[in-house]
Write a protein that binds this DNA or RNA. Structure first.
Lengths: 237, 237
DNA sequence: TGTAATGTTTACCAACCGGTTAAATTATCA
DNA sequence: TGATAATTTAACCGGTTGGTAAACATTACA
């Protein structure tokens, strides 16, 4: 896709610019691989904290320690950078959900899904914010991914959850909203990090907050999805 | 604050511009009130969908049906618009949490808090996204609000929840993470609306999704916070 | 009704931003 | 080593953006 776009302008004449990631030879030099890596790393930094429109090529260039035209040598447009970044990150971002195993024990599957998602929020907050920014602003550049691969994967896993509920292994519940709830609660710690820190205050804002969150969320979801109504003694006035 | 900023430039000379919301007389004319209202309404629209940096004064002007300089007559800078907007919206945004009543029944208090927050996500998604954008990008313009009024309110309500837990009315849990979880799950339906719609698909993306979400979340939190461990029969292989 | 304060518009500007051009520099390899 | 391709840089460009200047229009009010 990127390669096709690169060749769109010059029809016959000797190509005016070197056209990296070109059509003929595949991924060329060592240096190209390194620099693209470097750029995408910087782009992740900048896009994640400023969103697409709020980010400038100059910012990315500065973080990457390169000149702006040099960046544009590797990625023809700002949007191409963003596209490449999304493409590269989306797959690994969905991994935890993919690992969700129909054959496993429902409670432990859900528990470990929560834990994995929380680990990702802790270890890859930029990735989380990259998507959050994008989705929040209407997902103009990842709509396809949302309605395609993402929806398919969720549909598949929702069926698994529904089967568990039907078999009486967990409480009857809407699997989609369950998945939303897990996404929301876990990614919250990456996307709304400053708010979490501000509310917890300097004493509790350390890395321990992820352990506390894990404990709470596991309790919430495991108890919340346990079969049968609330155990007893919760009726008040 | 805004008034003080307005007078910073011209020191002695006859004030060059009309200086609305001026120092002497209080909030002046009817038309001023109307136009400021109009502008903030438009600003909410634009800031909520594009974030601060991603929004332009021209966009806001267009939505408001006014010229850019006219906007800048009422708010001296883009940041002043944003500040005024945040100030105006923050209070009502925190209302549901304020209504959280220590004297009430814990389960029904939590249940109705969830419901109110979900209603706000449905009825005021722009407000939710305004904050989400801001917090996501590091909250450079609302840090004070987060660490001041917000933290205070949460601290207060966290004590209430902790008392409930201590009295055995709900399960022992970290009250801060409980509040985060409620925020995250409810605001998710405003902030990540496109994703929710994309995943649910055209059939289920109608307004009914909020009812489904309410049902699921009430179940999750009420069951999840019920005293005692998971009722029975959830142990698998 | 007249006039001073308030409100609106047109024209403008400097900085920024995405992107291009072309020339210079460096790596590759026959 | 030398030619060729790949990489990097300086200079530049047109459009956008936040904001201003000043003239013009309208409103409030004595």
């Amino acid at each position: 896709m990127a390669a096709a776009a690169a060749g769109e302008r010059g029809p016959v004449m000797a190509i005016p610019r070197a056209a990296p990631r070109a059509a003929r030879t595949q991924r060329r030099t060592r240096i190209q691989e390194e620099k693209e890596e470097l750029i995408l790393e910087a782009a992740l930094d900048v896009f994640a904290t400023n969103g697409f429109r709020g980010s400038t090529i100059d910012q990315i260039a500065e973080v990457a320690g390169m000149s702006k035209p040099n960046l544009l040598y590797y990625f023809r447009t700002k949007e191409a950078m963003h596209r490449a970044l999304i493409e590269r990150v989306l797959d690994s971002w969905l991994d935890p959900l993919r690992e969700f195993d129909a054959a496993g024990n429902p409670v432990s599957e859900i528990r470990s899904y929560i834990r994995r998602k929380l680990e990702m929020a802790r270890d890859f907050p930029r990735e989380s914010r990259l998507f959050a920014n994008e989705v929040l602003q209407g997902a103009p550049r990842i709509e396809d991914a949302l309605m395609g691969p993402l929806k398919s994967l969720v549909d598949e896993k929702a069926m698994v959850i529904r089967a568990w509920a039907k078999a009486g292994k967990i409480a009857k519940c809407d699997p989609y909203h369950l998945i939303f709830a897990i996404w929301a609660t876990t990614q919250h710690y990456a996307d709304f990090d400053v708010q979490v820190r501000a509310v917890l205050g300097p004493n509790r804002a350390g890395e321990g907050r992820f352990e506390d969150a894990a404990r709470f969320l596991e309790h919430l979801f495991v108890n919340g999805l346990a079969v049968g109504g609330p155990p007893a003694g919760t009726a008040g006035s």
